[in-house]
Design a protein around this nucleic acid. Structure first.
Length: 491
RNA sequence: GGGCCCGUAGCUCAGCGGUAGAGCAGCGGACUUUUAAUCCGAUGGUCGCGGGUUCGAUCCCCGCCGGGCCCCCCA
C-alpha cells in the first residue's frame, strides 16, 4: 500500500512503531505470526466454567490496562469477551517483557485458571501466553467506536470490530436461508441454478447491468430476476423448483435498494392462487418463527404480527378508499389528470396506465400498509407475466406481501397463454420505445418455450435482503449485507 | 435527477477571518485487583481538492470529489 506509506500522518508513525515491535519480538525469538495456537476453548464456554478451572483461550485484545507489574486486558473471540490478568510474578520477568510489546488489537492466546477479582469480574490469571498476530494499525477509538457511516461501510471489518453485535446479521441471514431451504425441501421443491448472464433480461421491471463476453464477441446482461428460466424448467416437466440467486439491478441506491441482492423464487406447477396464498403465509410464519423464535417482530415504532391468516386487501378497493375509481379511467390518457393531481409532474404524458397506477399506489397507499398483509387484484397493466383474473376484466391473479409500508414478496398465477404473453410483451415494447426504461423486453426464446405448454403454475419471489431488513429492524438495507456497493475511492 | 446537511490527527469531536485544539490510541516515565484505570511528560495536521475575495482563508464565495438525510424510483 504505497499510498499509505507516503502519508506523513500520525498513522504512519504508529504503524512504524508497531513494525518496530514486530522486529523486537523476532529479536526476542518470538514469531509474531505463528501458524497455530493449538487447541483452544471458546471464551463464552470458558465463562461458564467454575472458578479455579484452567482455561485456554485466544482472541483479540480489545482493552488494555497496564499498571507496572500487573496488566489487565479484555480478550475477545467470536463467542464473547473475558478479562485476563498478566502478572510479572506469574508469567515470569522475562516473559513479562513481551507484555510491553502488546497492545489493543493484537491477537494472543492465553491459559490459566479462572478467578474473580475483588470488583467481582471473572478473570483468567494468565500463566502462559503467546502472541498470535501482531497488528500494525490502530483500532477505532475504544469508547465512541466507529461512527462515520462511510468508513463503516467501506471498512466493514472495522465496523464489526467496533460493534460485534453487527456480526449477528450475518449469522441471522445464514439461519434464515437455511430455514427457507428446509421449508421448501420438505415440500419437495428442488433447488435449481439458472444463468446469471442473459441475452435478454426478463421477469421484472428493472434496468439491467451489461457486460461483455470476449469469445462470443457480444454483450450480455446480468439477470434482474430468476423468473423466465424457472418457467422454462416447468415447461420441461419440473413441478416444484426454487432458487436463491443473486440478481443485479442498475438503479438508484437507497435505504431499501441494493444493486445486487439475493432473490428467492419458487414455482409450483398445478397450484392456483388460493393455494399460493396459503403456502406463502405458512412459509413466512415458518421461517420467521424458526429464525427469530417469534411471529411478532418490531420494526421502528411498529410491532409486525406475522401470525396467519393475514388480512387480504383488494387493489381496486384501496384506490376507491382514496377516492379514485380505476375502472372509470381505463386508459393512460384518462388517468393522467388524476395522477398529476396526486403525484405531480412525475406523472408524465407517455407513461403507461400501469406505471401511473403504480405511482399513485406507491405514493399514497403502500406507505399506510404496516401490518403483514396480502394485496390482490392488481391491474393487468402492471403485471405483464401474470394470468388474467376471469372474474375481473383488466385484473390479474396476483398477490403481494406488504409489511412496514413496503413490498416484501410478490407472486401470481403465471401467465401460460403464449399468445397473451406475446401481446403483453409487445405492449411492454411500446412502453420501452416511449421511454419507459424499466418496461420488459420481449424474449422470443421464452415465448417459444411457452408455446410448448406450461401447466397452470403459481410462482413467488422475494428479496432476501429486503425481507431481512424488516425482520431485523434495520434502518437501511445496507445493514444486512456485509459489503454493499460503494463508489471506489478516486485516485 | 431535485432539496438540505457534512468532510479538521488513525478514531471521536471542538474551533469558523488573525501562529490549528482536546480526548482516545501510540511514544517516554510512575504504578502488581484495574474496568473508558489513573497520574506526569513529549509528540502528532497539505483543516477533502481546485479556484476566487481579502493585507491575511480551516473559516466567506464558486466549482469539483466523497458521504449522509429527505423527495423520486427499481424488491
Amino acid at each position: 500500500m504505497a499510498d499509505e506509506e507516503q502519508s506523513p500522518s500520525r498513522l504512519a508513525e504508529v504503524r512504524a512503531a508497531r513494525i518496530e515491535k514486530v522486529a523486537r519480538l523476532r529479536e526476542l525469538g518470538v514469531d509474531p505470526y505463528p501458524s497455530t495456537f493449538g487447541e483452544r476453548q471458546e471464551i463464552a464456554w470458558a465463562r461458564e466454567q467454575p472458578e479455579e478451572s484452567g482455561v485456554r483461550i485466544a482472541g483479540r485484545l480489545v482493552l488494555w490496562r497496564r499498571h507496572g507489574g500487573s496488566t489487565f486486558a479484555n480478550l475477545r473471540d467470536q463467542s464473547g469477551q473475558i478479562q485476563i490478568q498478566l502478572r510479572k510474578d506469574v508469567v515470569g520477568e522475562g516473559k513479562y517483557e513481551l507484555v510491553k510489546l502488546l497492545e489493543v488489537g493484537d491477537f494472543i492466546g492465553v491459559s490459566g485458571p479462572l478467578f474473580t477479582t475483588r470488583t467481582g469480574e471473572l478473570t483468567v490469571k494468565v500463566e502462559e501466553f503467546s502472541v498470535l498476530t501482531k497488528t500494525l494499525r490502530p483500532l477505532p477509538e475504544k469508547w465512541h467506536g466507529l461512527t462515520d457511516p462511510e468508513t463503516r461501510v467501506r471498512k466493514r471489518h472495522l465496523a464489526y470490530i467496533a460493534d460485534p453485535e453487527e456480526m449477528r446479521n450475518v449469522a441471522t441471514r445464514a439461519t434464515f436461508i437455511r430455514s427457507i431451504r428446509s421449508f421448501l425441501e420438505e415440500r419437495d421443491f428442488i433447488e435449481v441454478a439458472t444463468p446469471v448472464l442473459e441475452s435478454i433480461p426478463g421477469g421484472a421491471d428493472a434496468e439491467p447491468f451489461t457486460t461483455h463476453h470476449n469469445a462470443l464477441g457480444r454483450d450480455f446482461y446480468l439477470r434482474i430476476s430468476l423468473e423466465l428460466p424457472h418457467k422454462r424448467l416447468i415447461v420441461g416437466g419440473f413441478e416444484r423448483v426454487y432458487e436463491v440467486g443473486r440478481v443485479f439491478r442498475n438503479e438508484g441506491i437507497g435505504r431499501e435498494h441494493l444493486q445486487d441482492y439475493d432473490l428467492l423464487e419458487f414455482y409450483w406447477a398445478y397450484a392456483d392462487l388460493d393455494a399460493l396464498k396459503q403456502l406463502v403465509q405458512q412459509f413466512y410464519a415458518s421461517v420467521i418463527e424458526s429464525t427469530f423464535g417469534s411471529l411478532k417482530l418490531t420494526y421502528g415504532d411498529d410491532v409486525l404480527d406475522f401470525t396467519p391468516p393475514w388480512p387480504e386487501l383488494d387493489y381496486f378497493e384501496l384506490f376507491r378508499g382514496i377516492g379514485i375509481d380505476l375502472d372509470a379511467h381505463p386508459t393512460a390518457e384518462a388517468l393522467l389528470p388524476v395522477a398529476r393531481e396526486r403525484v405531480g409532474d412525475e406523472a408524465k404524458p407517455g407513461l403507461g396506465r400501469g406505471r401511473l397506477i403504480d405511482m399513485i399506489y406507491k405514493r399514497e397507499i403502500r406507505p399506510t400498509l404496516i401490518q403483514p398483509q396480502l394485496l390482490t387484484g392488481h391491474p393487468v397493466d402492471i403485471s405483464p407475466l401474470a394470468k388474467r383474473d376471469p372474474q375481473h376484466e383488466g385484473r390479474v391473479q396476483r398477490i403481494q406481501v406488504l409489511m412496514a409500508g413496503s413490498e416484501v414478496g410478490n407472486g401470481f398465477a403465471e401467465l401460460n397463454d403464449p399468445l397473451d404473453q406475446r401481446a403483453r410483451f409487445e405492449e411492454q415494447q411500446r412502453l420501452r420505445e416511449a421511454g419507459d426504461r424499466e418496461a420488459q423486453m420481449l424474449d422470443e426464446e421464452f415465448l417459444e418455450a411457452l408455446e410448448y405448454g406450461m401447466p397452470p403454475t403459481a410462482g413467488f419471489g422475494v428479496s432476501i435482503e429486503r425481507w431481512l431488513m424488516y425482520l431485523t429492524n434495520s434502518p437501511t438495507i445496507r445493514d444486512v449485507v456485509a459489503f454493499p456497493l460503494v463508489r471506489p475511492p478516486s485516485d
